[in-house]
Design a protein around this nucleic acid. Structure first.
Lengths: 211, 211, 211, 211
DNA sequence: CATGAATGAGCCTTCATTCAT
DNA sequence: CATGAATGAAGGCTCATTCAT
């Protein structure tokens, strides 16, 4: 199923619109009509370029997966001989940026977050091609800090504690804006949140090691 | 528009079925047909008893909100003069149980978790009537541990770090089962996870206090 | 999949319209929109009463299969102790009437004829429930005339020669009306055609026997 | 609207593919996309070479009509001074071969057979240019056997009895394979079927004459 | 209280066709 | 001659909702 060249104006417009709509509405609620309207394209274009709604979703995933990876590399600035502590900080910052940044293609984070609570048929692909490599990178860092094998169950749980915090600062957006109308953990606060999570986690991890 | 006839067998059956379906599928994906079929009721009964799908969702929320509160009180076993550390442990266990327990009415936790990433029009109600009191209770505990005012920004962030971990161990279910097919952080491991999160968080919190 | 009671006005109207349209256009070309319009019903009614287009086709088949059987019994007037020759004549008349009669539910014949050249998924059902019993009845008659077992290959071929003629006088309608504009082998000529086919076939059969 | 560029590779490929697809699926169900894909051609090529789907069908008909005539001449081997009986046998064999043979361009027979039960707008053309000459040839033979004018109504009916048998052995393929799974009146049995129909028909015809 | 029946809006998809290059 | 791109119409289906009894 090789759906045509990729140098079409309509095709690009559809993918961009689709990305936003999928992230905002979720795959099931998103409608191809809406996407095409926003892209200024005819409905049938979706069949021509992507086969069907599924194909479009897949194309969006594949494309922005890569782009997201390039824009926010999980090892951004991480040097091989760097201290694990600093590695962790950089990882967290990269992760937070990826999921909280606005603009293009930041909605990829939202889309991914949604797949966690409401997995679609595409979830397996996401796990293999995006989530697994990122998670492995984190477990390696945690493994170095704890001084235990990255296959150790305890390493996984600590890694999850780190990721859980990061994701929550994204997820909690709607609830925070209601609980504390003045407060704002928006994209601008990324640096602050990075510091908090890093400190919070390093203590938990180090102590665990010491135990 | 006051649908108060609460002494109907059909009504009860519908609410029970609706709870399960809404939690499993989410509000948008859930269909009234499915709910009625599972409840053994006629479709029109929803109109009669609840007005429409929205009314049904609201009724389910209002009803099980209270029931969930009773079944999993956030202060379960917490005594006034207990140490903050122990309070935190109990809070975490209660929280985890509420969102990971199976059976009735545990799906309320799942429903709530879903509203975090995919808020519907009912989210405001949930925030005010369920989330806020729970969150306040946690900030009080954290406030005591850190020795800072519960209105302090730093307290909020630490509280979020705690909740974030809890929620993630629930959300990550689908991804964990794919990343590590043998592994299982399911409902049965609640005690183990409680211990992990409590230890991890206490260290972070204590050190923060010491700083 | 028990689709509701059968005492609905709309349901009846749809089935009647569907029968005509399916026979005229064939299953693939027939549209549910067209059927509903002719029946004065809403499109969604088809989902309510029959599930989908397939279910409707099946319902039409099942219903009119029986009705056709009752209106045109293949053994109409055939008595047990009658001569095979006379049995054959009556069978042929019944067969011709069934597929050439106009009005309700004569289009069932057209529908059946269409399935021969363009079988749909429903063909297996038709073969088992309608075609096989009719064909068996004919092979029994032919078997008696030829004095051979009804399982004999030669019996089958002769039976097919009889049926082939009958069906063709129906199929050839469009071609006849073009080749010989004045001519007409329409429903009114059923008796004449019955006589022709019966005589033509009896000779072929008897001689075969004598051989 | 005269599309005469017949010296194109694409054009030839499309016509060949179209023939197969039209015969297999029928005109309405066949899609130009499918045809073009099988021909390895671009969709727009159909517009260029044939105007539209209708024009393509027409072109296919016109072209293979002639080719079919050459490959399976209805008077194959028939000599002028031959006995009518032998003429009939040869005609039947030729007819059967044309509609039951596999390979190229045998599907023209299938296409023709389909037009009988499901005439399209092209049926008039087929009647005039293909069916009429064939049918006239048969009525001449029958006329000779019966010793009556070929304009006689009785001649026509007998001719139809012959053709009806032939067509049915083709049409009945799907039903036979279901009624008698082991049995097979397929293309390989052409000779056997020829003999059967010829004998069966000659008896009917001769007796008719004698009457 | 409850139900069978009916409805209109909207969904995804597919088709033949045409445009611009 | 040929092609990639785009289009409008239509098809089957599903949904929440409402009516009449």
């Amino acid at each position: 199923m090789n759906y045509k060249k990729e140098n079409s104006k309509t095709r690009t417009a559809i993918m961009e619109a689709a990305g936003k709509v999928f992230a905002e509405e979720g795959y099931p609620k998103a409608t191809v009509r809406d996407i095409c309207r926003q892209a200024g394209a005819n409905i049938a274009a979706i069949n021509y370029h992507f086969g069907d709604k599924k194909g479009l979703y897949l194309a969006v995933l594949k494309h922005y997966q890569g782009e997201s990876f390039e824009t926010y590399p999980p090892d951004l600035g991480i040097k091989e001989n760097e201290k694990p502590d600093e590695k962790l900080r950089k990882y967290i910052r990269s992760f937070l940026t990826r999921i909280m940044d606005e603009g293009h293609p930041a909605w990829f984070g939202r889309l991914l977050a949604r797949e966690f609570t409401d997995p679609t048929w595409a979830f397996d692909i996401l796990v293999e091609e995006t989530i697994r490599p990122h998670f492995n990178m984190l477990t390696d860092i945690v493994s170095a800090i704890l001084g235990k094998s990255s296959k150790d169950r305890i390493v996984r749980m600590n890694a999850m504690s780190v990721i859980g915090q990061c994701l929550y600062f994204h997820h909690s957006h709607p609830v925070i804006s209601r609980l504390y109308p003045g407060e704002n953990f928006g994209p601008q606060q990324i640096e602050e949140i990075t510091n908090h999570i890093t400190r919070f986690s390093l203590r938990g991890l180090l102590k665990e090691k010491a135990k």
